[in-house]
Write a protein that binds this DNA or RNA. Structure first.
Lengths: 192, 192
DNA sequence: CTCGGTGGTGAACGCGCATTAACCTGACGC
DNA sequence: GCGTCAGGTTAATGCGCGTTCACCACCGAG
């Protein structure tokens, strides 16, 4: 909440967006700096005027989405009316985000190992907190669950939610959205 | 079913096993041929006495597990007593395999894009058939489901099942097995 | 004993690619 | 009009890595 800049997509953002799509399609190592530049209308080393390096782009996009996921997730939890509603809200938020940012989702769980050490740790922490957010609501709902079990269940639910951006979509987005959300909450309900 | 060789792990297999673990840990591009050799006790180019190249190793392991997954899956379906039992059997089989071969699972859905074109197609076909296996049983169970919907649901279920090999296991394997299986069938049951 | 093949070795090669260097251009404050 | 600075360009650099080469040692068959 510092300067609150408005929605003219700056050059950096445009680069990050096309990078996300390329990385999602062919993998971080599968796309060269030259290709990425070309896809942005400029070519090759010009990217270094905007980013210190290729890894830095990956880092910036992954850190930022992890932060966003966690921040909004937290907000939805405090806004929610009880643990059951919170679980539902988290699932809805995640599926909304995942369908709206498919490339980022696939990059996030395919290429996070290509991050520079420092950023990798940061993303790991954020992701872990995010999963714990769901796990703790789950445990509030079913106190008999052990912490590791709840964590595993939450992780599995996100696995379900994240699986679909990868697929070619022969199915309507709205239908897919509700399908995934329903499946996820049902799965979470089956954690006896 | 030709010569039916017995269980002395041949050198090729040992290499493939350690390769699977390394690939799973650091990604296909993240492990060099030299490292892989070193991990096998031999070093570097010696691998070329067993495989025509690095990609060939990946290809061999991915094709073989895809085939195994599909073959056993088919068998379990025909053996099963009705669609509901078939769904359950498929889920059980997959979770059993996934927990028994975690590295292969993570490699399979992280690194399949690094396959040589031909093998990539083959794996894609096998995987698609495998998903369709579950999808069709699901449709037999709930005829109101459209084909794309059933397919998406099946894929989501596998996403759930495949998500956990990635996790550090602070939870017992048996408990995890039943947890995942229950979550998966519950999710598949929520496909209204 | 010798000979061929299997599985190993370390050195060399070549390429792709991220990164850097050197240089250019146009917009703008002064 | 003129430095300067942001944003490009192409050419060079250097390195990591997959792959190939030339050579070696053991070993079982003849």
């Amino acid at each position: 909440m510092t300067t609150t800049e408005q929605a003219e997509p700056t050059r950096r953002e445009q680069i990050l967006a096309t990078a996300a799509e390329l990385f999602a399609a062919r993998g971080f190592h599968g796309v060269s700096v030259a290709e990425l530049g070309a896809a942005c209308g400029i070519s090759g080393p010009a990217l270094y005027k905007h980013f210190p390096g290729k890894q830095a782009m990956l880092a910036e996009m992954l850190v930022s989405i992890s932060e966003q996921l966690l921040a909004v997730g937290r907000e939805r939890v405090v806004t929610a009316d009880g643990p059951a509603a919170a679980v539902r809200a988290l699932v809805d938020w995640h599926v909304e985000f995942a369908l709206g940012h498919r490339p980022l989702i696939v990059v996030q769980d395919r290429d996070w190992e290509s991050l520079p050490e420092q950023a990798r740790e940061q993303v790991r922490r954020l992701q872990r907190s995010y999963v714990d957010l769901l796990a703790s609501q789950l445990r509030a709902l079913r106190p008999e669950l052990s912490k590791p079990t709840a964590h595993a269940a939450a992780q599995a639910a996100f696995g379900l939610l994240n699986s679909t951006p990868r697929a070619g979509h022969a199915i309507d987005d709205d239908e897919l959205r509700t399908l995934l959300a329903n499946m996820a909450v049902a799965a979470l309900g089956a954690t006896t």
